[in-house]
Design a protein around this nucleic acid. Structure first.
Lengths: 122, 122
DNA sequence: CCTGGTTATGTTCGAACAGACATAACCACC
DNA sequence: GGTGGTTATGTCTGTTCGAACATAACCAGG
């Protein structure tokens, strides 16, 4: 196993106006940063390059009035990154949206899956 | 205006196991076929090439036990395509999932949008 | 002062993908 | 029998996207 493949059957991508979009990748990255305290560590966990992780963070910080991630070069451990209050709020809202959608549609999703060919269920 | 830009805010992509996924594009295509009775006409409406539309139809037909689209070459009007019962069911379920998710998360989505910079609402 | 781990950026290469052409088969209709 | 509109496929090409590589700045700690 390489990246802890998030399985969900339910991928939600939010379009917040302009080209600002928020999906599973950015949410997972925010969560990884909250957990590890580092952009690069979060990126490693998710199997993405530091460059890509950093680019996503830049996108995230640009798409809200206040940044979601605060970062520091140097210092103890070489540096690090943490979620701001706004970052935590956005992540929480996204997770709630995911969970609520999955819960309210569980039956419909099961109906769809029951129409699939045998042996192809994930 | 080129393609009748589907409303968005809320894009849901379902992973049904294996590489089978169902998202807004395929749903719109199914709807277009139901409306126009033709793959190419539906493709034109959505601003996609016939090739692409046909490829998506092939995918859709392969991912369920029964085909979602039935097509005929030649005949009145040169040919055409229609949704099967399965096709209508799948489309209906997907639309219901979209609607239910949007409804139950309207408030959370508004909260997210309120955090965006001014003048960038879509 | 040197080292190590991190943030921050630029550049380059390859693969995946979408779009544009091109063609053939099919059949009601005139 | 030709025409027209459609389904059905293949090929090619340009573009986009990610991965990989390379560097630099930064600073606590030994």
């Amino acid at each position: 196993m390489s990246a802890p493949r998030l399985h969900p059957e339910f991928f939600i991508r939010l379009f917040l106006g302009g080209s600002a979009m928020l999906g599973p990748g950015k949410a997972a990255l925010l969560e990884g940063i909250a957990r590890t305290g580092s952009i690069s560590a979060a990126g490693r966990d998710l199997g993405m390059s530091y460059k890509r992780a950093w680019t996503l963070v830049e996108d995230l910080n640009a798409m809200f009035r206040e940044p979601l991630v605060e970062s520091a070069r140097g210092g103890p451990g070489g540096g690090g990154a943490t979620l701001t209050d706004t970052g935590r709020q956005v992540l929480t809202l996204y997770r709630e949206i995911e969970a609520a959608s999955a819960a309210i549609n569980a039956e419909r999703l099961a109906a769809l899956k029951s129409m699939r060919p045998a042996g192809n269920n994930g």
